[in-house]
Design a protein around this nucleic acid. Structure first.
Lengths: 153, 153
DNA sequence: ATGCCTGCAAACCGTTTGCATCCAC
DNA sequence: GTGGATGCAAACGGTTTGCAGGCAT
């Protein structure tokens, strides 16, 4: 896996050590191939080896983040969700407010917006946090149905 | 203030009561006219009347949210920030990952992106959560300076 | 008078941290 | 052997909740 070798190379270069725990966290992230909470990652790792602590998961996630190997979104429910960045292309993530589901989106139209933001406000949008909140098709349906109900009441 | 009357009307209509605490929270939100954490709001309210609890602030914010009178962003620091929605126009907010500062942005280019998302993914972006994370001009400067330092090391 | 709303305090939960031990180097 | 990494457990901080008393209606 290229991210695996990336990770090991980064570790070596910066003088960090390669441990079984770090390999397992990375493996699980790769296996999930999408956003997952620290707890979900922890539980997956735990099935591989019971002797892995949640704090180690957090510390490894911090490490991966410092290597820019993962993206994170702040879920509306107060939990952070992590995802392996398999490529370094800017991806947009659509985060559902209701159910927390995250969908990846390839948007051709987003770049001009980012350029506009940079030139007008000097604000640099982080490609690793390119997230938009709203309602996924399923919840959107429920939401609008609810709205018309409460409006009728 | 129109939001004040909106609020009172909503309260009356839904059978809720108008209390001094709720008025104070709304007043402070109006005074701030930008994003603030629950704690910041609490402290401002506290100067007006020492006998107001943080839990009441949270409960009032929940209420305001259910009335769609406030917007909220999940800060990168784990704190939520709230803002009175004075108009119902879609505003974009630029949230700094480093310092948590929030800047409002009027973007002409954003609408085509939202349309594209809706038509391609059926995902409806919430105008109240239209936030982009990244680095504000100040932190951006620090960040890039740090990067070149660590790269040099 | 009624019951919604509040203050208080404790619980909650995701995340972080201190420290003794362990193991990759 | 040495110091970075781990597991354990406790602390932390923002947010939520249960409950008895208070006040808007």
């Amino acid at each position: 896996m290229s991210c695996q070798t990336d990770f090991i190379r980064e570790l070596r270069e910066r003088g960090f050590r390669l441990t079984a725990q770090r390999e397992m966290v990375l493996g699980v992230l790769h296996e999930i191939d999408g956003f997952a909470t620290a707890d979900e990652i922890y539980r997956r790792v735990h099935t591989l080896s019971a002797a892995v602590d949640i704090s180690t998961v957090y510390r490894t996630l911090d490490l991966l983040q410092s290597f820019s190997l993962i993206a994170l979104v702040e879920g509306g429910d107060g939990q952070r969700r992590y995802k392996l960045l398999l490529d370094h292309v800017a991806h947009t993530h659509l985060v559902c407010i209701e159910c927390g589901a995250v969908t990846g989106a390839g948007l051709d139209t987003i770049q001009p917006v980012l350029d506009e933001i940079k030139s007008r406000y000097g604000f640099v949008v982080d490609p690793g946090h390119l997230n938009l909140s709203g309602w996924c098709p399923q919840c959107c349906e429920k939401h609008t149905a609810q709205d018309s109900l409460s409006r009728a009441a």
